[in-house]
Write a protein that binds this DNA or RNA. Structure first.
Lengths: 354, 354
DNA sequence: ATTAGCACTCAAAGCGTGAGAGTGCTAACA
DNA sequence: TGTTAGCACTCTCACGCTTTGAGTGCTAAT
């Protein structure tokens, strides 16, 4: 059977209604609310067809219709309109985001905005530093036998670790060490540094420092490892209680415990495709089969890095939310783009206009 | 009326039973479970007295008794036993905590442990840097027109901000600036620096740098301000669903939205008394009237700083939880104590080589 | 002073009924 | 032939009634 123009229209109406009310939608309501010049009976016939085709389901015999995963997929691919955001909202987002913050702060803020505007649980992961290029290593004195190792990368990430030393140091030693390490490692990616035999590489240059390198280098590696991890920020936990699908405690528990497994969620996000990705119901992993997940990525310094998104019931305002996420990531990208046009070896040249 | 020995014993039994079952406890159950050689009728009379005295309440005429806030208070002050923790648990806590981490990481970990061991919502705030003494300022080059300002304090806090400059710089300029700022500000508390007129103080020394100070100093102040804030880490959101008192969605929503108001919660914690503090029901602010809050503080470098605690129903295992929190803060204190001038005290020295 | 006994209370669970929303089918209609 | 009105049927949900059981308070006996 073909999806006639009329069937499409009805399907769209059912989906729209269900998204906004969370109630199964019946033929009568449909014919009233959407004045499509058809009687309930006709609509009923069409809906019956749509059910046969797998687009609608029946919770039980005397209830209205509910869209299937297949219907949502069609809706997202063809039917929904990703309209422009209201100026007011755009303004607010830009405003809240504006400030040359560090990636972590931006991610946190973005999750906040996203949850506020969508009324769903939101999250954002910060870039993994895997491909970040080391810019600067600094070993700084803090107290007797204690120093801080600071690593800065070209995309603005700064990580540090405090180390208790097993030996004494002088400020000159630390400075020398910082210089040598920076000189040897600058421009290399974090990942590369972690996989190369750094001790050997530095050994000759640092011979004069006796025990110092042995004390510091493990912690330096530690700091780099920290840079590999993505940080996950979340917001809007308690928003779920506003949704009728979670008025049942067990359902609420389900989604909230899911979201509390941070490593798991991080994994899901990291392994996601690039771009704006929407996965609905069955398309998700087992623990999210009755939810929908919308994510997008953002770039720092032209490098693909962080992700953000929302999680909620399949009945979500896909169009609107996609627009918000799109607008948000665009804004973040733009705000991180500006470190360009330096002479140092970055081949791609991006020009921001408009 | 006086609280006879027997009344106390009965009261304690009621509280103990209610804490473990969440069901109003009746005279019959009590006489069975606690074989105190008294018939239900006698217990009934005593309970009636206890009710008159304000220690017990009746949800309704034909239900058992429930402890009042006053009863919990008595229990916490006199009746409960703060036994020692099982070795197994101690071992686990020490193990998980052991590693010279930064205050932020420690707080996060502590919240995690606390929620795991108590099965309640837990949180930990990191020190406010208000009284931290500045140790080191460093302005470091990151890219053209971009530098990172790093501030290190004596208690191991490290904060940094990336700044886009409005003027050019040379490495020498930055170094000079770092030196001058460190020299002028070292040993002063963050709070003091924020309230003094720093620009004026530095102006003469930095005259040679033209526009650089104007670019950097506001961001430096920004970084210091960040140090004032306590970071709040939480864990165990979804634990509430295991408690019968939150099987009602509205109750669950109540506690979870409360906990999501991070600034509010931070405030509550910051304004709390020192030491192990337990507040029950009415003793709390309006939005926690039917919960109990247990907190304690921990010190970094001898300075009173962070707090951690749990939030849950008034029916909580006060004794056990207090022990855990006590043990946890003791451990944290010990692990942060070492920056002192006594070289002794660290049992194990880790040596990594390869 | 304690306890057995009994009447009483109240929440919670179970049951039956009726209303309402919706369907599917059939027959009539343009 | 596609559309529609009509009608019987189905199923959930809300309501009220009854029963059950846990627990109390009081009284009288020990």
């Amino acid at each position: 059977m073909e999806l006639s123009e009329r069937k499409l229209k009805i399907l769209q109406a059912v989906i729209a209604d269900f998204i906004s009310t969370a109630e199964p939608v019946g033929s009568r309501t449909l014919s009233k609310n959407h004045d499509m010049g058809l009687s309930p009976a006709t609509i009923r016939n069409e809906m019956s067809d749509l059910e046969d085709m797998g687009y609608l389901t029946h919770p039980h015999a005397s209830a209205g219709r509910v869209p299937s995963d297949k219907a949502y997929r069609l809706y997202v691919d063809k039917l929904m309109n990703t309209g422009d955001l209201p100026e007011e909202m755009k303004r607010r987002i830009t405003e809240e985001l504006e400030s040359g913050e560090a990636p972590d702060a931006v991610a946190k803020k973005a999750a906040e905005i996203l949850s506020d505007t969508t009324n769903l649980i939101s999250f954002a992961i910060t870039p993994s530093g895997r491909e970040s290029k080391l810019q600067y290593v600094n070993v700084l004195p803090v107290a007797d036998q204690t120093v801080v190792i600071m690593v800065v990368t070209d995309d603005g990430k700064v990580n540090n670790t405090a180390v208790r030393l097993t030996c004494d140091y002088t400020n000159e030693n630390l400075e020398l060490m910082s210089k040598v390490m920076t000189h040897n490692l600058k421009g290399k990616t974090v990942n590369d540094i972690l996989t190369m035999n750094i001790v050997q590489t530095l050994e000759t240059d640092l011979r004069s420092l006796s025990a110092l390198p042995q004390s510091v280098i493990p912690s330096f590696m530690q700091t780099l490892k920290k840079m590999l991890d993505s940080n996950l920020y979340m917001d809007g936990y308690s928003k779920v209680f506003n949704l009728p699908e979670y008025s049942d405690v067990d359902r609420a528990r389900e989604i909230l415990s899911l979201v509390e497994k941070k490593e798991h969620l991080t994994n899901v996000l990291v392994n996601r495709d690039e771009g704006l990705v929407i996965t609905i119901g069955d398309e998700n992993s087992d623990d999210m089969k009755d939810m929908a997940l919308i994510t997008a990525d953002y770039k720092v310094n032209g490098r693909l890095v962080g992700k953000l998104g929302v999680l909620g019931p399949k009945r979500m305002k896909y169009g609107e939310i996609s627009s918000v996420i799109k607008y948000l990531t665009d804004n973040i990208n733009r705000s991180f783009e500006i470190t360009e046009d330096k002479p140092e070896g970055d081949p791609e040249e991006k020009e921001t206009d408009e």
